[in-house]
Design a protein around this nucleic acid. Sequence first.
DNA 1: TGCGTGACTTGAC
DNA 2: CGTCAAGCCACGC
Length: 99
Amino acid sequence: MSSLYDQIYAVIARIPSGCVATYGQIALALGMPNGARTVGWAMRHCPKGLPWHRIVNAQGKSSLSAEGRDLQRALLADEGVHMDLEGRVDLKRYRWQEV
DNA sequence: TGCGTGACTTGAC
DNA sequence: CGTCAAGCCACGC
């Protein structure tokens, strides 16, 4: 089942621990430079086992609500990624660089 | 088939 | 740095 969703999930699953990626970056990896919204739409399904906490918007901020943001912050902190109380991370430092 | 919606992005004020 | 608007893609009804 190589649906578009599976492709998105596969890319997200490829994100190494201790790093974060933006929706646009994932979309770009799939060949959709402007498909960031599609990625977010897919993320809405939140499959189990998916490191969704490594996904942030282009501003390096969590697009989730306060609750999700708090959980994301905890998960990232566990991976060594420091996230501000505002849900903001240093993309210049933690942004996932495709290899 | 067509419109509305959404965990987005970028540029402009 | 904050907010507003337009553009973009895929899916549900």
